[in-house]
Design a protein around this nucleic acid. Structure first.
Lengths: 118, 118
DNA sequence: GTAATATATGAGCAACCATTCAAATATCGA
DNA sequence: TCGATATTTGAATGGTTGCTCATATATTAC
């Protein structure tokens, strides 16, 4: 893996590196952060979240809205469910999905703002 | 691909689906959004952003801080550069990296808040 | 019961990704 | 010039992922 312990810059001592190291997010937090952002890192999932941010929808409606197969949508809904981003409610043959987490909603919209004016 | 055009729910007409469809983010926006979140969807990149949010760092320092090989860091910096998240400044043998975009900084911290209290 | 509808899921596959390893480039000091 | 340091890059690789296809489950209507 070949890891060095610091370059000759930063005054020759590693104190400055260590200072950054202390303020750095820890491994577990970094992993959870990455996992959170990963939930929104796919166009299909982004569009699902976007659709559900307007109103509750069943799987078939989502598939129709996005122009994708029911299976593909169902697979993505599964991962969104496991990430606790969506919740499901069964009603007869239909399963309705809603956004579960308001924070993700905020994150989504902040990302949207960032993308829209650039 | 087997795409259906709407289920019998929603009153039997596709008007309601179409309404959601109109408010949906378009494909290009969804792709750009996904791309933005993807930049932060990896633990290593998250930690790089976290480190650079404290101060400017050269590649070797980053590798030392994260305890990873210089090559791995360099590869990730390349993708972060291509995504316009970091900027580089050359000074002699060293190449210093800084965060390029304040929006990403905000996005990062909002994600951090979300992860920290849950 | 059967048929139709709605959803979920497992296998398979092609595409992508993060890292390692080896090698190339560039700069500085002697 | 040579050797050491700093960074970049390409190939290879093991792992992940998003989709399709086929199939399974569940509910409703008949």
């Amino acid at each position: 893996m070949e890891i060095e312990n610091g370059c000759e810059w930063s005054g020759g001592d590693d104190g400055q590196v260590q200072e950054v190291q202390e303020r750095l997010v820890d491994g577990v937090t970094a992993a959870r952060l990455a996992r959170t952002f990963k939930a929104l890192s796919d166009p299909t999932r982004v569009r699902i979240i976007s659709a559900l941010s307007h109103r509750e929808l069943c799987v078939h409606e989502l598939a129709a809205c996005l122009g994708m197969s029911q299976s593909a949508i169902s697979h993505q809904l599964r991962t969104l469910r496991e990430m606790r981003l969506v919740r499901r409610r069964k009603e007869g043959r239909h399963v309705f999905y809603t956004l579960d987490d308001d924070h993700i909603h905020d994150l989504f919209h902040q990302g949207l703002e960032h993308v829209e004016h650039e």
